[in-house]
Measured scan of single mutants.
Amino acid sequence: MGSVRTNRYSIVSSEEDGMKLATMAVANGFGNGKSKVHTRQQCRSRFVKKDGHCNVQFINVGEKGQRYLADIFTTCVDIRWRWMLVIFCLAFVLSWLFFGCVFWLIALLHGDLDTDYKDDDDKSKVSKACVSEVNSFTAAFLFSIETQTTIGYGFRCVTDECPIAVFMVVFQSIVGCIIDAFIIGAVMAKMAKPKKRNETLVFSHNAVIAMRDGKLCLMWRVGNLRKSHLVEAHVRAQLLKSRITSEGEYIPLDQIDINVGFDSGIDRIFLVSPITIVHEIDEDSPLYDLSKQDIDNADFEIVVILEGMVEATAMTTQCRSSYLANEILWGHRYEPVLFEEKHYYKVDYSRFHKTYEVPNTPLCSARDLAEKKYILSNANSFCYENEVALTSKEEEEDSENGVPESTSTDSPPGIDLHNQASVPLEPRPLRRESEIGSRR
């Protein structure tokens, strides 16, 4: 089982795998120059863009038009607004034209077009017409509009002379109601789609790998820009990579689940303020055997998904993003964004995407760390350097704002901070800030 798991979770494809794949392509008759073999020097295209759209195009789909027309309502909801407006206008105009032609044909076959009612006051002739005051196609078209929109100006009306005319008036009224219901329903469904809710759900630009509770963890940050909550919010993550099976089958995008606390339930989050999602790199993680150097040379993509129900409509929305291997910062942490004021908490989104480097973060893999092949620094050293990194950030910001350097908390000259780390230190809580992250 261990060997199978290692093969499945191998992220960085070796040169031997690339040569094996190329040999397979030639042997199977696919070596026509169009096949692409992804190596370390040639990274694959992003499968999920940063804005959440999937970078996929469908080609050679059989009976595409028929399949889309069979699900016309979903098609109308998914198309762009400009095409929705075109369909909206065409549906009414074509129905008016169709029934206008029908009423014109009825008048033509009944002989109503030969009668001039402007110079004739004989009401008996008017009563013999199928539709009064309809003696041309324009008049028939206007009567069709008046019937379907129930305008009723009063000059044109159907008589009991022709039952077919009466039937067409009733039929057009029913068709008009159906068109109204369909168009209004599609427009309302399109307006109520929770897709735009994703514009106020954000992911951090970069993911980070750092120590948390004595273990290497992959972390990324999510935030909600609205005050309205995302009900039943939960997160998922998958690692996408290519691999070759033991039988020699090439899988271009193998999807591997990344555990973010599904078993323990901590994948469900209360997204009021930005939260750091934590994936513990343990023996079940696809990143277990990867060191910093392996991450730098790897070719994979981590897709992160945030799902929840919109509070206003109770409709489920899904926000997506992805991180390539070069977008994962090893040995970094996110800057705090949640600050405790006197009577409330304040979230500073200008710090949302910012990170700071944490010294002495192990550069080895989580496996080597678990097997004690890498000796961690003293816990006080880690905490102290973590505090120094934050303090230096604040000093830089104070210097930019014009604060005198004498007010900063610099260490005395001639003292090495790293050498001082081995000395037991008193706890130094942050002056006014605390970061709330997901705790395992």
Results as ranks from 00 to 15, higher is better:
Asp180Ser: 15
Tyr349Leu: 13
Arg432Lys: 06
Ser246Glu: 11
Gly62Trp: 06
Glu232Asp: 05
Gln42Cys: 10
Tyr117Met: 00
Leu108Met: 15
Val169Pro: 01
Asp257Ile: 04
Gly62Phe: 15
Ile251Tyr: 14
Asn378Val: 08
Glu247Tyr: 06
Ile151Val: 10
Met24His: 13
Leu105Met: 09
Asp78Val: 09
Leu417Ser: 11
Val175Asn: 01
Arg351Pro: 06
Asn224Ser: 10
Tyr323Gly: 00
Lys118Gln: 02
Ala22Val: 03
Phe103Val: 12
Thr75His: 07
Lys372Gly: 15
Asp51Thr: 09
Lys346Tyr: 03
Ala210Trp: 03
Arg221Glu: 00
Leu306Met: 04
Ile269Thr: 07
Arg212Ser: 03
Thr391His: 09
Lys20Ile: 07
Phe171Gln: 02
Ala325Cys: 07
Val102Phe: 11
Ser136His: 03
Glu435Gln: 10
Asp267Ser: 10
Gly308Tyr: 05
Pro336Leu: 03
Gly214Trp: 05
Trp330Gly: 00
Cys101His: 05
His53Ile: 09
Cys130Glu: 02
Pro362Cys: 02
Gly402Lys: 05
Phe171Thr: 04
Asp120Gln: 00
Trp81Ile: 13
Asp121Lys: 03
Glu385Gly: 03
Gln255Trp: 09
Lys190Leu: 09
Glu395Thr: 10
Leu216Gly: 00
Glu395Arg: 09
Phe167Glu: 01
Ala25Ile: 04
Val86Trp: 09
Val77His: 08
His418Glu: 14
Leu417Met: 06
Ser13Trp: 05
Lys50Cys: 02
Pro194Asp: 05
Ala298Asp: 04
Asp116Leu: 15
Glu341Pro: 02
Asp284Val: 12
His353Met: 04
Met24Phe: 09
Val26Asp: 15
Gly308Lys: 09
Asn297Glu: 13
Thr115Gly: 08
Gln293Val: 12
Cys217Asn: 11
Pro336Met: 07
Leu290Gly: 00
Lys128Val: 15
Phe339Thr: 15
Leu329Cys: 09
Lys125Met: 14
Phe47Glu: 02
Gly402Phe: 10
Thr200Glu: 13
Val388Phe: 12
Gly185Asn: 06
Met188Cys: 13
Tyr384Ala: 06
Pro359Ser: 10
Gln238Asn: 11
Phe171Trp: 12
Gln318Pro: 07
Ile251Asp: 13
Asp160Leu: 01
Leu430Gly: 12
Lys34Arg: 12
Ile295Leu: 14
Ile151Trp: 08
Thr316Ala: 12
Tyr68Trp: 14
Gly2Gln: 07
Ser3Lys: 03
Val175Ala: 07
Ala107Asp: 01
Gly265Ile: 13
Leu201Met: 12
Phe270Lys: 06
Ile277Thr: 02
Leu417Cys: 12
Thr355Leu: 03
Phe143Asp: 01
Val260Arg: 00
Val158Cys: 01
Ile145Asn: 01
Arg46Gly: 02
Ser228Gly: 07
Ile106Asp: 01
Thr39Asp: 13
Trp81Val: 05
Cys89Tyr: 02
Thr147Asn: 01
Lys393Val: 08
Leu239Ala: 01
Cys177Pro: 08
Ala312Met: 08
Asn386Glu: 15
Gly214Asn: 13
Arg67Gly: 07
Asn378Lys: 08
Ile183His: 08
Asp289Ser: 12
Lys125Gly: 15
Lys393Asn: 10
Val169Met: 11
Leu430Lys: 08
Val388Leu: 03
Asp289Ile: 07
Cys54Ile: 07
Ile184Glu: 03
Ile209Gly: 01
Leu390Phe: 13
Ile179Gly: 07
Tyr334Gly: 01
Leu85Arg: 03
Leu306Phe: 11
Val12Glu: 15
Pro252Cys: 14
Glu357Phe: 05
Gln238Arg: 12
Thr147Ile: 06
Asp254Leu: 09
Thr361Asn: 02
Phe300Pro: 00
Ala298Met: 09
Ala389Asn: 15
Phe382Met: 14
Phe98Val: 14
Glu133Leu: 03
Ile251Glu: 15
Glu311Lys: 08
Leu324Ser: 08
Ile266Leu: 09
Glu161Lys: 03
Pro429Gln: 11
Asn28Arg: 08
Asp180Ile: 15
Tyr374Cys: 14
Gly2Glu: 09
Leu230Tyr: 07
Met19Glu: 08
Asp78Ala: 14
Glu307Thr: 11
Phe98Asn: 02
Gly214Ser: 12
Tyr153Glu: 04
Lys372Met: 12
Phe155Asn: 13
Cys76Phe: 14
Met211Gly: 04
Ser392Lys: 10
Ile258Arg: 01
Gln57Ile: 04
Arg197Ala: 12
Leu94Pro: 00
Ser408Glu: 14
Glu405His: 06
Ser127Thr: 13
Lys373Ala: 12
Val231Ile: 08
Tyr323Asn: 00
Ser264Asp: 15
Phe58Trp: 09
Lys64His: 07
Tyr9Cys: 11
Lys34Gln: 11
Leu363Ile: 15
Lys241Tyr: 07
Asn419Ala: 13
Pro274Ala: 09
Ile11Pro: 09
Gly65Glu: 04
His418Leu: 14
Met24Ala: 13
Ser45Asp: 14
Pro404Leu: 09
Lys393Phe: 11
Ser95Trp: 04
Ile281Lys: 00
Ile87Arg: 15
Asp282Cys: 08
Cys54Arg: 15
Val170Asn: 01
Phe47Gly: 02
Ile87Cys: 15
Gly154Thr: 04
Leu253Arg: 09
Asp294Tyr: 01
Arg221Lys: 01
Gln57Asn: 13
Val102Ala: 10
Val337Phe: 06
Val202Met: 11
Val4Phe: 04
Asn419Cys: 13
Ser399Asp: 09
Asp213Ser: 13
